[in-house]
Write a protein that binds this DNA or RNA. Sequence first.
DNA 1: ATGGGGATCGTCT
DNA 2: GACGATCCCCATC
Length: 183
Amino acid sequence: MDLLRKDAPIVARQLIGYELLVIEDDGSTTGGIITETEAYTAEDAASHSHKGKTKRNSVMFGEAGVIYVYFTYGMHWCMNIVTGDTGGGEAVLIRAISPTKNLKLMNQRRNNIEDSLLTNGPAKLCQALGITGRDNGLKINDHKQPRFILKRPVDTKSYNIESTKRIGIKKDTHRLWRFVAVN
DNA sequence: ATGGGGATCGTCT
DNA sequence: GACGATCCCCATC
């Protein structure tokens, strides 16, 4: 996917409105429309990749379309999509989606919380979609090992996108690399 | 409506 | 040995 080869801030903005789908072990599909993202690059002090390649962040230095999943706060998983065309350690954090597929399963995993709270946070959506460390390093739209699918929905709706400061970081807070669909 | 704190552990200093 | 790209509960206003 050519889109993902661009720089992370460009990709982060353009991914708003794309549909992210996960193929479950039983063959069913979960997922939704991406409504909030954040960009991280190696030059950016807030990024896991800033200080170079380590065991945790190594897949961030892989090719565009690889999934980078990290564990945080002792209990949460968050997912990124690697971007760029130089293996330079950039990625887009998926912060929220609007659920479209298999709400029942996602609801079950999220302890029967109301629909509006199902996938409105980076760790929430990973819980709802069943994404964990075992997904780290998988590739999007991989025909040989189908797990993550990213596509533009047929009803090409246009979104108003707001860019703001990123959430929960202490360094390089000035960058306006959080993108939110405001409708 | 808003804010403080607890849960919990892999990764890096 | 400290802390985090978080979430949720409960307290207080």
